[in-house]
């Protein structure tokens, strides 16, 4: 018995890796499988669920969270967190509305607004980028953990929104503005087109560019990244700027869809955005995950919410179910990590 194995000097200790890894497979595709099961189940339970109109509704609603989730994926990949996205959305939407209506708190009553919607668009994006940049700088140069920086940012940006917004909503934008929330391109709602477009851009960025690779490296081991000549501070600043950009974009789309911007917009959006990323398999410990999972995660939450409404389940239950899914997703992530490190 002893001799059987001693002849094999370099025993293939890694043989297990080539076998089918059930947990690894499940970790990767569980959200997608669950999403498909949900769609089938809701479709069987209620025929209206799979009607084109409802699908379009779900996708449009998901898109706004989805855009923010794309940005959040970059941040979480670096093992960071951004709690301020909901507040940035409110601020960016409010500023855009002010620009669009020429500072008229009553809003423009008609389509005859004199200010081109493009300025409002640039304002929303600019505010988002500036807010993200500011938080990225603070994290890097004051050495404050991102949880705290963005927790502060969350209340600061909300406060500024209330200050500039004068309390009430600003509504009534011109058709060009509204098109970004209500229009369609060959029948596909514009928000969905944006979500799809930026998901692809982000996927390519993370997979195929040096910057994307560096995001993973910084998340996996910041010290090793620094010693490999990666500009860690730049990467960290950039990812918060990216979430800011997406929050600004989502703000513009949301305002366009509602034809209104208000200071309480985006309240607790950050939770659903973070949930989308985490359910999609991006590890809170950094370095693992990606945008494809986030898209699935965002769809999963959207489908779940819509489906439960269709089944006339009380809305409180939605929150409970989503909470359970988040905890399960993170528990699985933690389990997979402990399994990896003991292997």
């Amino acid at each position: 018995m002893l001799n059987e194995q001693t002849t094999q000097i370099s025993a293939p200790k890694k043989a297990a890796k080539t076998e089918f890894d059930v947990i690894g497979f499940f970790a990767k595709f569980a959200p997608l499988i669950f999403l498909i099961v949900l769609i089938i189940a809701f479709g069987l339970a209620n025929e209206r669920f799979l009607s084109p109109r409802n699908i379009s509704n779900i996708l449009t609603e998901v898109s706004i969270f989805g855009l923010m989730s794309i940005g959040m994926t970059f941040v979480i990949l670096t093992a960071g967190i951004d709690l301020s996205v909901g507040a940035i959305l409110a601020l960016a939407g409010m500023m855009a509305a002010l620009v669009a209506t020429g500072g008229n708190y009553e809003g423009a009553a008609t389509d005859s607004a004199t200010i081109w919607w493009g300025f409002a668009f640039l304002t929303a994006i600019g505010v988002g980028i500036a807010a993200g940049l500011l938080q990225g700088f603070t994290t890097n140069w004051l050495g404050v953990p991102p949880f705290v920086v963005t927790l502060g940012g969350m209340t600061i940006f909300r406060g500024i929104t209330l200050l500039v917004g004068g309390g009430g909503p600003i509504s009534g934008f011109d058709a060009g503005f509204r098109w970004w929330g209500r229009g369609d391109i060959f029948g596909v709602p514009v928000p969905v087109c944006l979500f799809g477009f930026f998901a692809v851009v982000a996927w390519v960025t993370l997979k195929h560019t040096r910057f994307g690779r560096n995001v993973f490296a910084v998340g996996a081991n910041p010290e090793a990244a620094r010693l490999s000549g990666i500009n860690v501070k730049f990467v960290i600043t950039a990812v918060y700027t990216i979430t800011g950009f997406f929050a600004g974009l989502a703000a513009f789309v949301l305002a366009a869809r509602l034809n209104s911007a208000e200071a309480v917009a985006g309240m607790s959006f950050e939770l659903r955005v973070i949930a989308s990323v985490v359910i999609g398999g991006t590890s809170l410990f950094g370095g693992i995950g990606g945008v494809a999972g986030t898209v699935v995660g965002a769809l999963l939450i959207g489908v779940m919410m819509n489906g439960l409404v269709m089944l006339n389940v009380q809305s409180f239950w939605q929150q409970i179910v989503i909470g359970v899914i988040i905890v399960l997703a993170v528990a699985f992530d933690t389990y997979a990590k402990s399994r990896r490190s003991s292997a």
Binding site: R213, A217, I288
Partner: peptide, 17 residues
Amino acid sequence: QQGCFLELSVAANMGVV
């Protein structure tokens, strides 16, 4: 602690610089 990106692939580890 300072060299490997333990969670990343051999390719990512080798190509980083």
